[in-house]
C-alpha cells in the first residue's frame, strides 16, 4: 500500500462494511492487549505513584521467552505459563533490586530508574535473542474462521478470551481477597494502610510482580501475530502507556477502556491509511489530554489530596 500524502491521498476509498468489521476485530484484539499492558502500568502507578517504563520490556521478554519455550517443544500452555512465571519473578526482582533501595527518592528518580532498567533489559534481550523478529506458532490452527464477509483468526479469539479471563481474575483479586483489598488500601492512602499493619513495601513488590505477570502474558499471546523482537517493547509499552493515560492513569477500568479505544481507532486509522497507524494513536492521546487532562475516567484534578 502506498504511503499517504501527496497525490496518493486521492487513492483513499471509503471502507466497505466488511472491511470495517475486519478492522473492528483486529482493533479489539490489539486493544485488549494494550488494555492488559495499561493495567500493568496502573497497578504499579497505584502502588508507588511512578510510571514503570520497563513495562514494555516485560511484554517483550514475555513474548521472547514464550516463543523460545514453544520452539523448544514445550506445549503451548506450558510455554505461556513459563513466560508468566519468569516475568512475575523479574518484576519482583526489579522492585527488590532497583526500586526498594531507592526508597525515599523522588518520583522522577524512580521513573529514571525504570527507564534505565528498560534499556538494560532491551540490551539483554538483543544479546540473548538477536536483533531479528522471531516467529511463534499460533495457539491453535492458523486457518481463519469466516464470519460472513470478514474473517477472524483463532489467535484473535484466544487473545480476547485470555484478556477477558485475566481481567475477571484481577477484579476478583481486588474485590474479594484480603490481599487485593490491602493493595487497594495502599493505593488510597499508603500511610493509613501502614498504620493498620499492612506492609506497604511488600504490596509494592506484589504490584511489580503482578505487572510482570501481566506483561509476560500480554507478550506471549500477542507474539504469534506480531512476532517477537528484542525492541518490540518500546512501541507496545508506549501504546499501553497511552491507553492508561487515555483512561485516566490509576484507574483500572479506564485502562481497559483506553486500551480498547486506542486499538479500535488505531486499526481504523491504519485501514484508512497504513502509514498513519501510530500517528492516530498518539494524536488521539494528545487530543484527549488537551480536552480532559485527567483522562476519560480519571478523577478531577485536585481531588486526590482531599482531606477526610
Amino acid at each position: 500500500m502506498p504511503a499517504c500524502g501527496g497525490r496518493t491521498l486521492y487513492a483513499m476509498t471509503l471502507p466497505t462494511g466488511a472491511q470495517l468489521l475486519q478492522y473492528l476485530i483486529s482493533g479489539l484484539t490489539l486493544g485488549s492487549v494494550y488494555g492488559m499492558i495499561a493495567l500493568g502500568f496502573t497497578l504499579i502507578h497505584n502502588a508507588t505513584g511512578i510510571v514503570n517504563f520497563a513495562q514494555g520490556e516485560f511484554v517483550a521478554f514475555g513474548a521472547l521467552i514464550a516463543l523460545s519455550c514453544s520452539e523448544a517443544g514445550l506445549p503451548m500452555p506450558l510455554a505461556v505459563l513459563t513466560a508468566m512465571a519468569a516475568m512475575t519473578l523479574l518484576g519482583a526482582a526489579l522492585e527488590r533490586a532497583a526500586i526498594r533501595p531507592a526508597r525515599g527518592a523522588s518520583v522522577i528518580t524512580l521513573i529514571i530508574i525504570t527507564i534505565g532498567a528498560s534499556i538494560l533489559l532491551r540490551g539483554i534481550a538483543m544479546w540473548q535473542w538477536g536483533p531479528d523478529a522471531l516467529p511463534m506458532r499460533h495457539f491453535s490452527s492458523e486457518d481463519p474462521i469466516h464470519l460472513g464477509p470478514a474473517s477472524i483468526l483463532r489467535q484473535h479469539l484466544w487473545i480476547m478470551g485470555i484478556v477477558v479471563a485475566t481481567m475477571l481474575g484481577l477484579w476478583l483479586l481486588a474485590e474479594r481477597t484480603q490481599v487485593g483489598k490491602a493493595m487497594r488500601a495502599c493505593a488510597v492512602d499508603r500511610e493509613a494502610a501502614q498504620l493498620v499493619g499492612i506492609p506497604a513495601a511488600r504490596m509494592v513488590m506484589l504490584s511489580f510482580a503482578l505487572s510482570g505477570m501481566l506483561g509476560g502474558l500480554a507478550g506471549s499471546i500477542v507474539a504469534p501475530l506480531s512476532m517477537g523482537q528484542y525492541n518490540m517493547g518500546i512501541m507496545l509499552g508506549l501504546k499501553g502507556f497511552c491507553a492508561a493515560i487515555l483512561g485516566g492513569i490509576g484507574n483500572a477500568p479506564g485502562a481497559v477502556l483506553g486500551g480498547l479505544l486506542l486499538g479500535i481507532l488505531e486499526s481504523l486509522g491504519a485501514g484508512l491509511c497504513s502509514g498513519m497507524k501510530d500517528a492516530v494513536a498518539f494524536g488521539i492521546m494528545l487530543m484527549v489530554l488537551l480536552v480532559r487532562p485527567t483522562g476519560l475516567l480519571g478523577r478531577r484534578a485536585g481531588r486526590g489530596e482531599a482531606v477526610g
Binding site: Q178, V188, A192, G308
Partner: peptide
Amino acid sequence: PETIVRAGISQVPEGRRLFAPLSVWDNLLL
C-alpha cells in the same frame, strides 16, 4: 509501622484517613 502494630500500638490518624472507596466492612477487616 506494621511491626509496631503487631507489638500492640494502633494509631488513629488525624483526618481519619479511611479507605473511602472500600466498604465499612472492608475497612474494619483491613
